[in-house]
Lab assay of single mutants.
Amino acid sequence: SRYQRVDEALPPNWEARIDSHGRIFYVDHVNRTTTWQRPTAPPAP
């Protein structure tokens, strides 16, 4: 859903941030990219 819980676990090396307008975006520290779409953790084997 559009309103996912912010405290749900993100994949490793990802961080949720809030911009100056109060919107949540996500930072990938490995690839040094950002996205508005919440990343999903790969399925557990």
Rank of each mutant, 00 (worst) to 15 (best):
D28P: 00
P45M: 08
E15S: 07
P12W: 04
Y3M: 14
H21V: 07
S20F: 14
F25G: 03
E15L: 02
D7V: 02
T34R: 03
L10K: 04
Y3G: 07
Y26S: 01
Q37H: 15
P39G: 01
A16L: 04
R17P: 01
V6F: 15
R38V: 05
E8I: 04
N31Q: 10
I24R: 07
A16H: 00
A16P: 05
Y26D: 03
Q4E: 13
D19R: 00
T35H: 05
Y3S: 13
P39T: 00
V27W: 04
L10H: 03
A44P: 06
G22A: 03
T35R: 02
H21D: 12
P39F: 14
S1Q: 12
V6T: 15
I24Q: 07
H21E: 15
Y3A: 07
R32E: 10
G22M: 01
R2M: 12
Q4W: 07
T35P: 00
F25R: 02
D28L: 00
R2W: 03
F25T: 06
E15D: 06
N13W: 04
T33V: 13
V30W: 06
V30A: 13
V27M: 10
T33N: 09
I18Y: 15
D19P: 00
P45R: 12
S20R: 10
A16I: 00
P45I: 10
L10F: 03
R17K: 14
E15A: 04
P12E: 15
R2Y: 02
H29L: 11
W14T: 02
P42N: 08
P43S: 13
N31G: 10
P42D: 08
R38A: 06
N13D: 11
H21S: 11
P42A: 10
P12H: 09
W36S: 09
F25K: 02
V6W: 02
D7Y: 09
R23L: 04
E15T: 06
H21N: 11
I18P: 05
W36N: 12
N13M: 13
Y26N: 00
H21G: 10
D7P: 12
R2H: 10
A41V: 12
D7F: 03
G22V: 00
Q37C: 12
R5K: 15
N31K: 11
N31A: 09
R2C: 02
P45L: 03
G22Q: 06
P12C: 02
Y26M: 00
H21C: 10
E15N: 01
F25H: 09
A44G: 10
Q37T: 14
D28Y: 01
T35Y: 05
A9F: 07
D7C: 05
P43F: 07
T40M: 12
Y3R: 08
R38K: 13
D28G: 00
P12I: 11
P42E: 11
I18Q: 14
R17A: 09
Y26G: 02
R38Q: 06
P42T: 08
E8Y: 05
P11I: 01
H29D: 04
Y26T: 00
P12T: 09
L10A: 00
R2G: 12
R2V: 07
R23W: 04
P45S: 13
P45C: 05
D19G: 05
I18H: 15
H29W: 03
V27R: 03
Y3P: 13
T33K: 08
H21M: 12
W36P: 07
S20Y: 07
D28E: 00
Q37D: 02
V27L: 11
G22T: 00
R38L: 05
Q37L: 11
I18C: 09
A16M: 04
W36A: 07
E15R: 03
I24M: 10
D28Q: 00
R38W: 01
V27Y: 12
P11A: 04
P11G: 04
T34Q: 08
A9C: 09
S1D: 14
T34C: 08
P42R: 06
S20H: 12
I18K: 14
W36G: 07
V6S: 14
S1F: 14
V6R: 13
I24E: 08
A41P: 10
I24V: 06
I24W: 05
L10S: 02
A9M: 14
P42H: 07
T35K: 01
T40P: 13
A44D: 12
S1G: 14
T34D: 05
R17G: 05
A9G: 10
P39H: 01
A16T: 05
R5W: 02
R23P: 01
A44H: 06
I24A: 06
G22S: 04
T35W: 00
L10W: 01
A41D: 10
P11Q: 04
D28T: 00
W14M: 07
N13L: 04
A9S: 13
D7G: 06
T34L: 02
H29V: 07
W14Y: 07
R2S: 11
R17T: 02
E15G: 03
Q37A: 11
A41G: 10
S20C: 11
L10C: 05
T33H: 12
T35E: 04
V6G: 14
A44C: 11
N31C: 08
H29E: 08
E8F: 08
V27A: 06
W36F: 10
P43V: 14
R17C: 06
Y3K: 11
R32P: 03
Y26H: 02
D19V: 00
R23M: 09
P42Q: 12
R32W: 04
T33P: 00
E8Q: 12
T35Q: 09
I18L: 14
P39E: 02
Q4M: 12
D7Q: 10
D7W: 03
E8K: 10
P42K: 09
Y26E: 03
P43Y: 04
I18V: 12
E15F: 00
E8L: 12
Y26R: 01
R5G: 13
L10Y: 03
T40R: 11
S20L: 07
P43K: 11
A9D: 15
R5Q: 15
T34A: 04
I24S: 03
Y3L: 12
Y26K: 02
P39M: 01
N31L: 07
Q4A: 08
A44L: 08
R2A: 09
N13R: 06
R2I: 11
S20E: 14
N13H: 06
W14H: 00
P43L: 11
T40H: 09
H29Q: 14
R5N: 14
P39Q: 02
I18T: 15
W36M: 09
F25C: 04
F25W: 03
H29P: 05
I18F: 15
P11N: 03
P43T: 13
N31T: 14
W36K: 10
R32C: 11
V27F: 11
F25A: 04
H21Y: 05
I24Y: 06
W14A: 05
G22E: 06
P11S: 02
D19K: 00
D7L: 02
P12F: 01
R38T: 07
T34P: 01
A16D: 01
T34V: 04
P42M: 13
T35N: 11
W36D: 10
G22P: 00
P12Q: 08
G22D: 06
E8S: 10
T35S: 09
Q37I: 15
R38C: 05
Y3T: 12
Q37S: 11
Y26A: 01
N31V: 02
S20A: 13
E15H: 04
Q37K: 12
H29S: 10
A41H: 12
R38D: 05
R38F: 04
I24P: 09
H21Q: 15
V27D: 01
V6L: 13
S1N: 07
V27H: 05
R23G: 08
A44F: 03
R5T: 15
N13F: 09
T40A: 13
S1K: 15
W14P: 02
R5E: 15
E15V: 08
Q37P: 01
V27T: 03
P11H: 03
R2Q: 15
P45A: 15
Y26C: 00
P11V: 02
A44V: 13
T40V: 10
R5H: 13
E8N: 10
H29F: 01
W14G: 03
P42S: 10
L10V: 06
Y3E: 05
P43N: 11
T40L: 10
E8G: 10
S20K: 14
D28S: 02
A16Q: 11
R23Q: 13
E8M: 10
T33F: 04
R2E: 14
A9V: 10
H21A: 11
R5P: 15
L10T: 05
R32A: 09
I18E: 11
T33W: 07
A9R: 11
R32D: 14
G22Y: 00
P42G: 09
S20N: 07
Q37N: 15
V27P: 06
T34M: 06
H21L: 10
T33G: 04
F25L: 05
P39D: 01
I18A: 14
P43W: 07
A44T: 12
I18M: 14
E8A: 13
D28R: 00
R2L: 05
E8W: 04
Y26Q: 02
T40C: 08
